[in-house]
Computed example of a mutant assay.
Amino acid sequence: MCFSKKSITFPSNGVQVAGFLNTPENASKATPALVCVHPGSSCKDQTAGIYAEKFAEFGYVTIVFDASYQGESGGEPRYTEDPSARVEDIRSAVDYLTTLDIVDNDRIGVLGVCAGGGYAANAAMTEKRIKAVGAVACANIGRLYREQNPIQTLEQIGKQRTAEANGAEPMITQWIPNSQEEREEAGIDDIDIKEAIDYYKTPRGQSPNSPNKLKFTSIEKVIAFDAFHLADQLLTQPLQIVVGDVKGSFGSYYDGHELYEKAASQDKDILVLEGVTHYDLYDQPEPVAKAVDKLKDFYKKYL
């Protein structure tokens, strides 16, 4: 099915968020819709955008956007990763969809990739306009950062905040090494990091809206965030998780299973794809097709 794609903006807690709206050619007042949520460090032009376009081809109105403070979206300070803002962005995207005559407000779902999957699940706990939750290679970003010397990092952040309060320039760090050579020099030998570099830092997935920059002091917000907190009480919507069984340091295999076990959803499922890595589910044709096939049946049933 053909669809049209246009650039849009919508407000999210005082920030103008930039996104793409994909509209199927046969959209009517009864059209279901999906909010597609990108990974940490990513943008609307990358993997979440791939899934958004595929579901537009299936007849869904889809919206994908750059997180507040990142990409083409507004907000200061730049390159901030703020979980509360990321969740609010999802709520605000739902707000935007409800203003469209073609969208059925009772048939809105969410689909997140990597940290976007964690944010999607977290948003759905208190955003009951979301009727179905899909999470691909989902990761609990807070858990990931809590495994990396969190107390030491928080002490460093405190010192940096003091320095910036006294006139120092904001400290901008990076999400991943900028090259495989840089990774090797750092002594990192992990499949997720290797493939992250291959995805984000080569023509495979590179985008100017995903510059591998992260405001260091914003990491304090990430460390304190648990994407799955209260999922056993509040995540009641139907849930479909897709992960690969090749395990890397980002932990999506384990996070996917934790979310599956914890969610209060009566209707939930986890699909584990054999021989598939975290980043295979970003853009590789066969794994993405398997994920999409599973999610297509899921959203057809629940939206």
Rank of each mutant, 00 (worst) to 15 (best):
D189H: 14
D189S: 14
D190A: 06
D190G: 09
D190C: 09
I191L: 06
I191V: 12
I191C: 02
D192I: 00
I193S: 06
K194H: 11
E195I: 03
E195R: 12
I197N: 02
Y199W: 12
Y199N: 09
Y200V: 05
T202D: 10
T202S: 12
P203W: 11
G205E: 06
G205T: 05
Q206E: 15
Q206N: 14
P208D: 15
N209H: 11
N209S: 13
N212V: 05
K213P: 04
K213L: 11
K213I: 05
K213R: 15
L214I: 06
K215F: 09
F216T: 02
T217E: 00
E220P: 02
E220C: 07
E220R: 02
K221S: 04
V222Q: 08
V222N: 02
I223Y: 02
I223W: 01
I223V: 13
F225Q: 01
D226N: 13
D226I: 04
A227G: 10
H229A: 13
L230Y: 15
L230K: 15
A231N: 10
A231K: 05
D232G: 14
L234W: 07
T236R: 13
Q237S: 13
P238K: 13
L239N: 00
L239A: 05
L239Y: 07
Q240V: 09
Q240S: 12
I241P: 07
I241M: 07
I241Q: 08
V242P: 04
G244K: 02
G244W: 05
G244A: 07
D245G: 02
D245S: 05
V246N: 02
V246G: 01
K247I: 15
G251P: 05
G251M: 01
S252V: 07
Y253C: 03
D255F: 01
G256M: 07
G256A: 09
E258W: 13
E258A: 15
E258P: 08
Y260H: 11
E261M: 09
A263M: 03
S265Y: 03
Q266N: 14
D267R: 12
K268F: 11
K268M: 10
D269A: 10
I270K: 04
I270A: 08
I270R: 03
I270E: 05
L271D: 11
V272Q: 09
G275W: 05
G275S: 04
G275M: 00
V276C: 09
V276W: 03
H278V: 08
H278W: 02
D280P: 12
D280H: 10
D280C: 08
L281I: 07
L281V: 03
Y282M: 04
Y282E: 01
Q284M: 10
P285M: 06
P285Q: 04
E286A: 13
P287I: 03
P287G: 00
P287Y: 00
P287F: 00
P287S: 02
V288Y: 04
V288H: 00
A289L: 10
K290G: 10
K290V: 11
A291M: 13
V292N: 07
D293P: 03
K296G: 07
K296Q: 11
D297S: 09
F298T: 01
Y299P: 00
